[in-house]
Write a protein that binds this DNA or RNA. Structure first.
Length: 423
DNA sequence: TCTGGGGTCCTAGGACCC
DNA sequence: TCTGGGGTCCTAGGACCC
């Protein structure tokens, strides 16, 4: 049976979320910044038209932004996460086969819908999301995930498509592939695109037509899979249930460079504490903790240093105290004086379900008590706000804290930020 | 002065064992 | 003391994604 996939992609997602709660932003250039207000990660169409590049450093495009009065926002993940969940809920009313691929994208399985007018079905989805949530989306439909991604680009690019592009009927595949750069294909990044270009492979069609053996040699099995998918052979299936996480990371760039060990200790404790909370939230435990620190890669003429230390936990755990202690031990091992550190983080490795570690956990009475303490800890932070209680003592200097000067309110996830309508 | 954060997968190479 | 093949496991690094 032929497979049918749809890719639903929210247009300029973060910008669209900001516009939803401030309609004055509609029709004018808007951008959203990364954590730490470092670079541009979302742009409205008007901002794109001004030539503001994706990923551009904020300070570099600042003159342009000033000149054109571009509205600028720090990223507001509680808001975006909540809006994302609403979109996904609407999609679930159209098919049970929904794979949430990222915060702003979902793959749908539409096998068995062959008889229908798929583009019309897509337009229904679009209209319902617009009416119920208020966000614009683009939808691509095709026989493989890679082609569905490509079709969603077509849906955005061609005004005639009306936001939905069905590659199974609307255009010959070869023509669409010929109009697509190889680097725009899902699975072909910067490096491979450059390599392909050097070998005369410029378009998606060139890749489609390249010999298997050559692709296998230069792009490994993942590259061959991509080429097969371009040819309409489905190799990447829908993932209905997300596979269990293997690692989880909490890391941040610092608002200002950090030189002192005590400041780094403070940052690493906060990150490790947050990582432990993430584990408990997912009912997971970890067997190892890595701490890592690095200087800026961008400053010329300054010595660069980056290092990671991995510490084995004595038995898998999600206990904040143990994890913080291990992360700090890792930090001591890699810290070197004389550097201006710009970023640090904590990675949890060897994740496993808490339930599988239970027996071991309760083998010792002190561990059972630890679990009770952590539950109370999380409960307090849930009810009174994140960070109400934490491990350790915040250091006197907080220069490592992120810059986030342009954040919009948490309209939908904090009562005090609820928008007010006035008649 | 200022350049995100959080993930996955594949491969090559070394250690170790029989 | 040297020779050889083959298997597994682990890690580091590189590539990708949003």
């Amino acid at each position: 049976m032929a497979r049918i996939f749809a890719l639903v992609d929210c247009n300029n997602f973060y910008v669209s979320c900001e516009r939803l709660f401030d309609p004055a932003l509609i029709g004018i250039p808007v951008v959203v910044l990364s954590n730490n207000d470092g670079c541009i990660i979302a742009r409205s169409e008007e901002a794109k038209a001004l030539g503001i590049a994706m990923g551009a450093a904020f300070f570099e495009v600042r003159p342009l932004i000033r000149r054109h009065r571009v509205r600028v926002f720090s990223s507001n993940y509680p808001l975006y996460g909540d809006m994302s969940a609403r979109v996904m809920d609407v999609l679930a009313t159209f098919t049970p086969e929904v794979e949430i691929y990222s915060i702003d994208e979902a793959f749908l399985g539409l096998d068995g819908f062959e008889g229908r007018d798929l583009a019309a079905y897509g337009r229904q989805m679009r209209a319902k999301i617009h009416r119920w949530v208020g966000l614009p989306v683009s939808i691509g439909i095709a026989g493989t995930k890679t082609l569905a991604k490509l079709a969603s680009h077509m849906a955005k690019k061609s005004p005639a498509a009306g936001g939905v592009f069905d590659l199974t009927t609307m255009a010959p595949r070869r023509r669409v592939l010929a109009d697509t750069e190889a680097g725009d294909v899902w699975g072909v990044g910067h490096r491979l695109a450059r390599m392909l270009k050097a070998h005369g492979i410029h378009t998606a069609l060139d890749l489609h037509d390249a010999p298997d053996a050559w692709i296998r040699k230069r792009m490994a099995v993942t590259g061959l899979r991509t080429a097969m998918e371009l040819r309409g052979v489905s190799c990447i299936d829908l993932e209905h249930v997300p596979p269990p996480k293997q690692t989880t990371v909490v890391s941040r760039s610092f608002g200002h460079p950090v030189t002192r060990l005590d400041e780094l200790r403070d940052a690493v404790s906060v990150f490790a504490g947050r990582a432990a909370e993430k584990l408990r939230g997912g009912r997971l435990v970890a067997s190892n903790v890595s701490a890592f620190i690095m200087t800026s890669r961008f400053i010329e003429g300054e010595r660069h240093y980056a290092n990671t230390a991995t510490i084995a936990l004595a038995g898998s755990t999600n206990h904040s105290g143990r994890i913080i202690q291990a992360a700090l031990a890792g930090l001591e091992r890699i810290w070197r004086p004389g550097y201006r550190y710009k970023k640090a983080g904590v990675m949890m490795l060897g994740l496993a379900a808490e339930s599988r570690a239970q027996l071991d956990l309760f083998a010792s009475p002190s561990r059972a008590r630890d679990t009770d303490i952590m539950e109370a800890f999380d409960d307090i932070n849930r009810r009174l706000g994140a960070g109400t209680i934490r491990y350790g003592w915040p250091g006197p200097r907080q220069g490592w804290r992120m810059n986030q000067q342009r954040r919009s309110p948490s309209y939908t996830t904090r009562w005090t930020d609820l928008p007010v309508a006035r008649g």
